[in-house]
Amino acid sequence: MTSKGKQLAGEMCAEFAGTMILILFGVGVVAQVVTSEDGSLGDHDSIAWAWGLGVTLGVYVAARLSGAHLNPAVSIALAAFTEFEWRKVAPYVLAQTAGAFVAALIVRASYADLIGAIDPDHTIATQGIFSTLPGNGAADVSIPTAFLDQVVGTAILVFVIFALTSAWNNPPMANLGPVVVGLLVVAIGMAWGANAGYAINPARDFGPRLASLITGYGGAMRDQNGDLYFWLPIVAPIIGGLVGGALFKVLIGMHLTPTEEEDVVVSEPVTEPTTQR
C-alpha cells in the first residue's frame, strides 16, 4: 500500500470510530428515553445534550487523523468550498455510514429486551430510536416541511462549523473546538428538533435505519404514514450543507483578510475538527 493509501486508510478508521462513538451516545440515549415508560430516564433535553456530547467525544476521537467530519454533508461541503479532496469523499462517507451502522447494531442488541417489552412487533412506536421521522412520528408534518427543515438545520450546522474552523475567523482554540461544535448540535436539537428529528447527517440516519431494517423493523424505510422516507434525511442535509457552505463563503469567508502573522500560521499543516451530528 502506498503512503497515500495508508493515510487514507487511517482517516477512514478515524471517521468510522468517531461516528461510532457519536451514534453510541446519540441512538443510545434515544433508546433509553423511549424504553423508559415513566419518563424517569430522560426527556427531549437529555436527548439533545447526549447527542451534543456524543459529537464532542466523537470529534476528540477522530480529529487528529481525519478532521472528524463524521457527516457526509460536511465532507461534501468541505470538498465543494475548501481544499478537501473530492477523491476522499466517497471513502469518508462509507466509513461514516459503516460506523453509524455498527453502533446502531450495538444499541439494538443492548436494548433488545427493553424494546421487546414495550414494542414486541418492532413498529413505528420504537423506530424513532434508530432513525428520524416527520414530526418525530407523532405530529402531522408534511414531506416538504420536513425537507425544508433538514435543509435549514444542516445549513446552520455547516455555516457555523465553517466559522468555527476558519483559521482567519478567530475560532476557538483547537482543543476547545469539539466542545463548541457539540454545543452547536445541542442548540440545533433544542431549536430544530420538532419537524423532522434533526438528522442533519445522512450517515447518522441511514446507518441506524439500515441496522433496524435487518433486525426486525420491516417498515424502517417508511414514515408513520407509509410513505418512502429514507431518502429525505440523505438528500436534504447534503443540499443544506452546500447552502450553508456557500453562504459562509459569500457572507464571511470572502471578506476575511489574514494578517501576515495569521498567513504564516495557516500555511502550516493543521488538522481542525470539522464535524456535526
Rank of each mutant, 00 (worst) to 15 (best):
W86C: 05
R87N: 03
K88G: 01
V89C: 09
V89D: 07
V89R: 12
V89I: 12
A90W: 11
A90F: 15
A90N: 04
A90H: 04
P91T: 13
P91M: 07
P91G: 09
P91K: 11
Y92A: 02
Y92W: 09
V93W: 13
L94W: 00
L94V: 15
L94M: 14
L94E: 02
L94H: 00
L94F: 13
A95G: 09
A95W: 14
Q96K: 03
Q96L: 09
T97Q: 04
T97F: 10
A98D: 03
A98M: 15
G99L: 04
G99D: 08
A100E: 05
A100Y: 09
A100H: 07
A100T: 08
A100D: 06
F101D: 14
F101E: 12
F101G: 12
F101P: 11
F101W: 11
F101M: 12
V102P: 05
A103T: 12
A104K: 12
A104F: 06
L105V: 11
L105F: 13
I106Q: 00
R108T: 01
R108D: 13
A109R: 07
A109C: 06
A109M: 12
A109K: 13
A109Q: 10
A109Y: 13
A109G: 06
A109V: 09
S110R: 12
S110A: 15
S110C: 08
S110D: 11
Y111E: 14
Y111I: 05
D113N: 11
D113T: 07
L114H: 04
L114V: 02
L114Y: 05
L114K: 11
L114C: 01
L114D: 06
I115C: 05
I115E: 13
G116A: 07
G116V: 07
A117Q: 10
A117R: 01
I118L: 13
I118S: 04
I118N: 07
I118A: 03
D119F: 02
D119S: 07
P120Q: 06
D121P: 01
H122V: 04
H122D: 04
H122F: 14
H122S: 11
T123I: 09
T123A: 11
T123Q: 03
T123F: 04
I124H: 10
